[in-house]
Amino acid sequence: MAFDYDKYIRPGKLPHIWCPGCGHGIVMKGLIRAIDALGFEKNNTAIVSGIGCASRLPGYMDCCTLHTAHGRAAAFATGVKMAKPEMNVICVGGDGDGTAIGGNHFIHACRRNINITYIIMNNKIYGMTGGQFSPATPTGAKASTTPYGNPDPPFDIAKLAIGAGATFVARGTAYHATQIDKLIVEAIQHKGFSVVEILDDCPTTYGRRNKYKSVIEMMNELKDIAVPVKAAEKMTPEQLKGKVLTGVLYKEEKPEYTAEYAKVIERAKGAAK
């Protein structure tokens, strides 16, 4: 039997705003399958986003949903999780939202290792505002604000997350759709701050400007550049040039923030006696 996505879609809130060929919808379906696989109760699940095309995702989901301000998802989510640690808290958003304006909140959520899963839909561009370059736009690429090619070097978002202290970091692509839910499930099951970067596409503002002939070409590129971490172990640096690693890139057990704060409460109550 086909998977019933409607179970988690808010009645009456479709159609979505995404363009034909946009990768964000593929990620949402992956997230829905993951939530279903985990058996999460909708009332106990908060989905928090910032602003952008990717950040419109929560509105379609039949959970506790919080569409915040540009870049602030991790900070709002931190408030939700601290106040109600028993809730499942998931952040979603774009590369610009999460790593430009929201970069500070993102790295500090990584550092605290608070039990939140952050899904970044990386289409390498500011889609919603018409295609300005983001911190994930490759050097040389065309954006509406880089008419002569992008002079900025991009972030490697997964490495940024690892460097900042996230204890679970995975990467997938919108082409490898059936892997997305598995990565999200593993990320959510991990106790601590987990980051899942999904490389996807924005045909409307990135594809057109950068001479992609079709969405299919953009999807094929995602297929071609992705190398699973296991396979990469057997490849030479030469062979890995221009490729990106996919799968679980990093995993480490470390004290989780809300659990540590529970100990603070114990100590404070002990001291008060």
Binding site: V48, A69, R72, A75, F76, T78, G79, M82, N104, H105
Partner: peptide
């Protein structure tokens, strides 16, 4: 928090949990 924007954001997130 890491800055005042984050602090205000966390406050609203927490307030929404009651």
């Amino acid at each position: 928090m890491e800055d005042e924007i984050g602090a205000m954001s966390a406050v609203i997130g927490a307030a929404l949990t009651g």
